[in-house]
């Protein structure tokens, strides 16, 4: 398949660039998140490269989602959640940004498809734009088409944009959610197990979408499916009990991991 080749080629290119020149979109230092005093992740230091897909793997309860959600202030809603340490986006501490601005620039796609049930397909895609700042009607049409196209949904829905989003299948709803996220033009997109509620065909469509998105966006994906991590990502981070155990090129993680814990997990000998 062409995709695998391209990944290798691109990885090779990144490899040759000296460490200084690599562009990092997200960097965390000593990131610790606790819920009511109980630490969920502890001292996470990670640098995520621009225009790559980075997957986060690890057993349930290891803090993958907690880490992901700290990157766009999603813990702000949870009572008793405390975030310590620094998170930098484009070399700037996220506390220096406005919270809504961070959320706009760091989009998120959730585990269960969650389109707005009261809106039709079109309105779902433009919801983020309209409620941030007004835009002209003709601009909106263009954005809707582009976003749906990029999310791989345009061909299926172009004749029924005014139909309720709830009329779509689960997989289509998830791609609609991706389109909705793309419409506000973020730089980083976080995927929190985006395919775990979907069938294999929808999953492969979304994985295909991820591959195309890499050109424009930095992608971080949490997944329980190691094959998926191996298929879609350039870099993989292995979390265990709230710690970042190993973070390296995906191929390295799956073929010659440095840590014993990682090896046990990726080979299924875990526990």
């Amino acid at each position: 398949m062409e995709t695998a080749e391209e990944i290798t080629k691109e990885a090779a290119v990144i490899e040759t660039v000296s460490e200084e020149k690599v562009k990092y979109t997200v960097e965390t230092e000593g990131l610790t998140v606790s819920f009511k005093g109980r630490e969920a992740i502890n001292d996470i230091n990670i640098k995520i490269r621009a225009n790559t897909v980075t997957s986060i793997i690890g057993p349930s309860g290891c803090g993958k989602s907690t880490f992901l959600r700290s990157l766009n202030f999603m813990h702000d809603l949870t009572p008793g959640a405390k975030v310590k340490g620094t998170i930098k986006i484009h070399n700037k501490n996220i506390d220096e940004y406005d919270m809504t601005e961070v959320r706009r620039r760091v989009g998120m796609v959730f585990q269960k498809p969650n389109p707005f049930p009261t809106m039709n397909i079109y309105d779902n895609v433009v919801a983020g734009i309209i409620m941030n700042k007004g835009k002209k009607r003709n601009e909106l049409n263009e954005i809707v088409e582009q976003s749906l196209e990029l999310a791989g949904l345009w061909e299926e829905v172009k004749d029924r944009l005014k139909v309720s989003a709830m009329a779509l299948s689960g997989g289509q709803q998830q791609r609609l959610c991706i389109a909705r996220t793309l419409a506000v033009n973020p730089e980083i997109i976080l995927f929190d197990e985006p395919t775990s509620a979907l069938d294999p065909i929808s999953t492969s469509k979304i994985e295909e979408t991820l591959f195309h998105l890499k050109n424009k966006y930095t992608i971080v994906i949490v997944t329980h499916n190691m094959q998926q991590a191996a298929r879609v990502s350039d870099y993989t981070a292995y979390f265990f009990l709230g710690k970042l155990i190993e973070y390296a090129r995906t191929r390295t993680i799956f073929t010659s991991p440095r840590e014993k814990l990682t090896e046990d997990y990726v080979t299924g000998r875990f526990g």
Binding site: L77, V102, R103, N114, F116, T118, A127, M131
Partner: peptide, 29 residues
């Protein structure tokens, strides 16, 4: 109104009061 809907709206950078008025309230209307 499922919590995931509020999160979806906030993740789009929609301010909280607008999320409440235009997403949450509208869903429950």
């Amino acid at each position: 109104v499922p919590h995931s809907l509020r999160e979806a709206a906030l993740a789009l950078g929609i301010p909280r009061w607008k999320t409440t008025l235009r997403i949450v309230l509208r869903t429950a209307q």
